[in-house]
Structures are given as structure tokens and as C-alpha cells.
């Protein structure tokens, strides 16, 4: 038995394919660089940009938008957190607080 006849009839709409997911980056009015604000679905880059405007700048949050296909984002491996992010911890000389200056001076 089995076969298509036994498919439950509620699957009338195919959800197999969502529109692709995009990551959205917005540069605010006073922002220095684009910041990741979230994601959305869109069929293509043009609609992704329009959707990003509608979704993430409703309250005048931004002046510039980037959208990137989520599949194009390469992320660091969480298990590599040690090797990637620990080494700088012994390079305290990169931070301003490493240096002693006379307290009454503005530097």
C-alpha cells in the first residue's frame, strides 16, 4: 500500500521551499559601520533590500542597508573559541589601560 493516495490532504501547499534566507546589515544615521540586525526571507536581492527596509527601518533606524545570502556567511567554529579569541588576552599592551600616565593629565 502506501503511495500518493495516502498522503494526508492538508499538505495542499508545498512548504518544501521557503524563499532563501538573507542576513540584514544596517548603518544607522550616526552609525560608523553596518551592524547585523537580523534576517528575512526574499526570493532575490532586490526584494530582499525592499523587505529589509520595510522590516528593519520602520522607525528611521538606518540610512544604508546590506543584504547577504545567509548561506554566504562563513562563521568561526564555536569549538575554536580558545585558539581564535584567547591569544590577545596576553597582549595587554594593546589596551590604553596598560599604560600609566600622571593622573591629572588628560591624555
Amino acid at each position: 500500500m502506501g503511495g500518493p493516495a495516502e498522503q494526508p490532504d492538508f499538505r495542499s501547499v508545498s512548504h518544501a521551499e521557503d524563499w532563501p534566507l538573507w542576513e540584514v546589515f544596517i548603518r544607522g544615521r550616526r552609525g560608523l559601520s553596518h551592524q547585523h540586525v537580523g534576517s528575512l526571507h526574499a526570493p532575490d536581492p532586490e526584494l530582499a533590500l525592499q523587505n529589509a527596509r520595510d522590516l528593519y527601518t520602520r522607525r528611521g533606524e538606518g540610512v544604508s542597508i546590506w543584504v547577504v545570502r545567509s548561506t554566504e556567511v562563513h562563521a568561526s567554529d564555536p569549538d575554536d573559541q580558545g585558539p581564535l579569541f584567547d591569544p590577545p588576552s596576553d597582549k595587554a599592551y594593546r589596551h590604553p589601560t596598560f599604560y600609566t600616565v600622571p593622573e591629572d593629565l588628560q591624555l
Binding site: R11, H15, A16, E17, D18, L21, G38, S39, L40, H41, L55
Partner: peptide
């Protein structure tokens, strides 16, 4: 709803699947 579906999607389910 959209922000939240996106948060759920980071766990490996699709929005269409959730709508279903």
C-alpha cells in the same frame, strides 16, 4: 513574528515547516 521565526530558524527548522 518574523523576528521570532528567524530565531527559530537558527535551530534548523524552516518557516514553511513551522507554518505547516
Amino acid at each position: 513574528g518574523l523576528y521570532l521565526y528567524a530565531a527559530a530558524e537558527t535551530l534548523g527548522v524552516g518557516r514553511g515547516e513551522l507554518t505547516e
